[in-house]
Amino acid sequence: MTDWLPPEAATALALSLRVSLVATLVSLPLGVFVAYALARWRFPGHGLLNGLVHLPLILPPVVTGYILLLTFGRQGWIGATLWDWFGFTFAFRWTGAALAAGVMAFPLLVRAIRLAIEAVDPKLEEAASTLGASRPKVFATVTLPLILPGVIAGAVLAFAKAMGEFGATITFVANIPGQTQTLPTAIYSFLQVPGGDRAALVLVLISVAVAMLALALSEWLSRRVARRIAG
């Protein structure tokens, strides 16, 4: 690579982008579903689900990482099953970093989408049903287009959170260059070695640039969608 960007830094950046993108895209459908359930349905365990979703926001990230390790680690109750049945593991892999990032970003994703869903007038959905649309069709043709700006905003927020995720990641999958060393953990590593602060600074600047870029992109997308929806 170029000399202004050390190879470890380039690897960390690429890994971070991949981890964050995968975390965001995989959690998006689940996030929309959970947000819809929380916004529109009343069911036993509503409060519990709401609390569970928000837990990563309130818990120390290290605790979330440790819980992930206990559940999804090779010895964890889900992790062990995944390993025994499918030979798949999150432990010390980039997929584990993506899982940690996804879990940490999930509350932000759900909150943004839930707000958007709550802003949609259920009367419009009723109107669609009188016009012959079943529940899934109402969602696809009325609700989803109307909440799209909120979904985009939530996704960008989640992506940014995933890019910056540190505590849960390092606890769950450690800090292995090329495997689980994301941007923040790479910065942390560079700061631990003498003479590493220049590389750290470059990575810091890249972090800022990526965050700003994502924000600008989401603003632009949301505004476009909003204009299309408002007419």
Binding site: D121, K123, L124, E126, A127, A128, T130, G132, V142, P145, L146, R228, I229, A230, G231
Partner: peptide
């Protein structure tokens, strides 16, 4: 198969 015209029109804004 029943048409419904609401007081507030409820046209789809998008």
């Amino acid at each position: 198969e029943i048409g419904y015209v609401f007081q507030d029109a409820r046209l789809f804004p998008h």
